[in-house]
Design a protein around this nucleic acid. Structure first.
Lengths: 119, 119
DNA sequence: TTGCATACTTAAGATTCTTATGTATATTTG
DNA sequence: CAAATATACATAAGAATCTTAAGTATGCAA
């Protein structure tokens, strides 16, 4: 198993819930493993969600009422599908808007909008 | 002391060093308290660096060789100025580039580039 | 039949932040 | 001028969130 270049210093920290919720906004329902693969695919392996981060986060989102689960058996193997609740749909918008605002602030703070950064 | 709306869920997490280093890139040298005020001003209080986060981070950056200090006395009060080392200047570029890349990835992942998000 | 992919769970440890406490000087304001 | 606020640093305890690791088990391909 190879290691690919990922973001250091925990940039992902704090965005994991937002990513998961937003995926479910577009996909209706997904199961855990599917989420990790989708994120890996969409980001060209720049973001890889580890299982140790994913499953506790899914459980937390369910506990706080943003997700509900549907268990299904694929052969003998359990698969837990997650989907947004109505509350979850609101939470997604809040989270995404907040993140959009945050990166605007950061772009300004780090001078990322001005041209000729690397001259 | 009033509480103003800040970013929840630790979005700032992982970006603090980047913010500090980038400020010092433009300002030559700054002291801790000055940094907190500058960030508060530049972000309209959207980002407030607490002392408990700031000082340990400054110490860590010094320890890892990105910053050096100059103590000065203003009257009887100590003030520690921080400035970038040569290594620190490299680190800033790396950190900022990484963060710029990260928000590009996130903008794509969260669909922030497509118009009519909030219609 | 061995290894890899799929699929979920949880515990231990690391990192990074918040909150709280402590110390001390300087300035503003009633 | 006394009290409150601002300046200025430090650090410890606790919370949140992630990584790493270990465990369990099925399905498939070489």
């Amino acid at each position: 198993m190879y290691i690919c270049p990922m973001y250091s210093s925990g940039l992902i920290k704090g965005t994991l819930k937002t990513i998961i919720l937003n995926l479910l906004k577009n996909e209706n329902r997904m199961y855990g493993y599917e989420i990790t693969q989708k994120v890996k695919d969409l980001t060209g392996s720049k973001i890889k969600i580890t299982e140790g981060a994913l499953y506790p986060t899914l459980h937390a989102l369910e506990k706080q009422g943003d997700l509900i689960t549907e268990k299904e058996y694929i052969g003998k193997r359990v698969r837990k599908y997650y989907k947004l609740t109505d509350q979850g749909k609101t939470t997604v918008q809040e989270r995404v808007n907040e993140f959009a605002d945050f990166i605007q602030t950061m772009r300004f703070l780090l001078d990322l909008d001005s041209p000729k950064q690397n001259v």
